[in-house]
Amino acid sequence: MMTGFRLNLSPLKEPLGFIRLVEWLTAIFAFGSCGGYSGRNIISLFCGDGKNETLSASFHYPFRLSQVPLIDGNTTLCNHSVATTHMVGDAASSAEFFVGVAIICFLYTMVALLVYLGYMHVYKDSDFGPMFDFGVTAALALLWLVCSSAWAKGLQNVKDATGEEGIHNTLALCKESDVICQVTEFAYMRTLNISVVFGYLNMFVWAGNAWFVYKETRWHSQKYSGQAGSGRPQVPAPI
C-alpha cells in the first residue's frame, strides 16, 4: 500500500471535506471577533455646581475588568475627593476558553483538510483514522456548546459591568446627591455578539459533520452490512 502524498481536491466537493472548510472559516470568525476586541465607554459626571467631568473606561480581551481603572490615582471630582477606582468583574476565563477552543478547531481543520486532500487513500484504508476523526469531531462539537454558553454568560457580565448601572454601583461618587453619572458613549459590542453567534454556529456545524465522519468508520459499515445481511431471503436447507 502506498502511503505517499497524493493531491486530490475531490473531497472538497463532498460533505466530508466541504464542511471541514466551512469549520475552518467559522473558527477564524469566532476567535477573530472575540480575541481582537477593544472598546471604550465614556462616563459623564454632571456636578451640582454646573460643571461636568468626563471619565474614560477602556477595556479589551480577555476582559479582566478589575484591572481597568475608572479613576487612576486620588483626585477631586465634582468637589469630592475620590480614591483610585477600578471596574468590577473578570470574564477572562470564559473568553480565553472560547478563543482557545476556536484556535484548536482552526488547527485541527487544517490538519484534517491536509489528510483529506493528500492522504485520503490512507484514511479510508485504515480503521484508526476515521474513528479518531469521529471522536475528535464529536468532542469538539460538545466543547463548542460549553465554551459558547460560558462566553455568552461572560459577555453579559461585561455588558452589565460596563453599563450605566454597573458604573453607578462601582463608582462611589455616583451615589452622592449632587452628582449624576451617565454613560454617554458606549463601546461598540456588535462584534462580541457576533462571536457568540459564531460559537453556536460552530457547534451545529461540527455536530452535523460528526455524522458524515461517522459514515466513514467501520461502526457504520458493520451496521449497514448487518442490516443488508438480515434482509436477505433465507435459502431452505436441502431435504
Rank of each mutant, 00 (worst) to 15 (best):
T3P: 02
R6V: 08
R6G: 01
L7G: 09
P11R: 09
P11S: 05
L12K: 06
L12F: 09
E14V: 02
G17R: 06
F18N: 08
L21K: 03
E23K: 04
L25A: 15
T26L: 11
A27M: 03
A30W: 12
A30Q: 13
A30C: 15
C34M: 13
G39R: 06
R40D: 02
N41P: 03
S44H: 14
F46P: 04
F46E: 11
K51Y: 07
N52A: 13
S56G: 01
S56T: 05
H60C: 02
Y61V: 03
P62K: 02
S66M: 14
Q67Y: 10
Q67S: 14
V68T: 11
V68G: 00
V68I: 10
P69V: 01
D72M: 11
D72L: 14
D72A: 15
T75W: 12
T75D: 07
L77H: 02
H80W: 10
A83Y: 11
T84V: 03
M87C: 01
V88P: 06
D90K: 03
A91R: 12
F97E: 04
F98Y: 14
F98T: 01
G100I: 04
V101I: 15
A102Y: 12
Y108C: 07
L114Y: 12
Y119R: 12
M120H: 12
M120I: 08
V122W: 08
D125N: 12
F128K: 04
G129E: 01
G129K: 04
F134N: 04
F134I: 06
V136K: 05
T137G: 03
A138D: 05
L143N: 10
L143A: 15
V146Y: 03
V146W: 07
C147A: 15
S149R: 10
W151P: 09
A152G: 10
A152Q: 10
N157T: 11
K159E: 02
G163D: 00
E164I: 02
E165N: 13
E165D: 14
G166Y: 04
I167R: 00
L173N: 00
S177N: 10
S177Q: 11
S177R: 13
V179Q: 05
Q182T: 09
V183C: 02
T184P: 03
T184H: 07
T184K: 08
M189L: 13
I194N: 06
V197N: 06
F198P: 00
F198T: 00
Y200C: 05
N202R: 00
W206K: 05
W206F: 15
G208E: 00
G208L: 05
G208M: 08
N209M: 06
A210W: 07
V213L: 09
E216K: 09
H220C: 13
S221F: 10
S221H: 15
Q222K: 13
Y224L: 15
G226W: 08
A228R: 14
S230E: 14
S230R: 15
G231A: 11
P233N: 02
V235S: 08
I239P: 15
I239M: 10
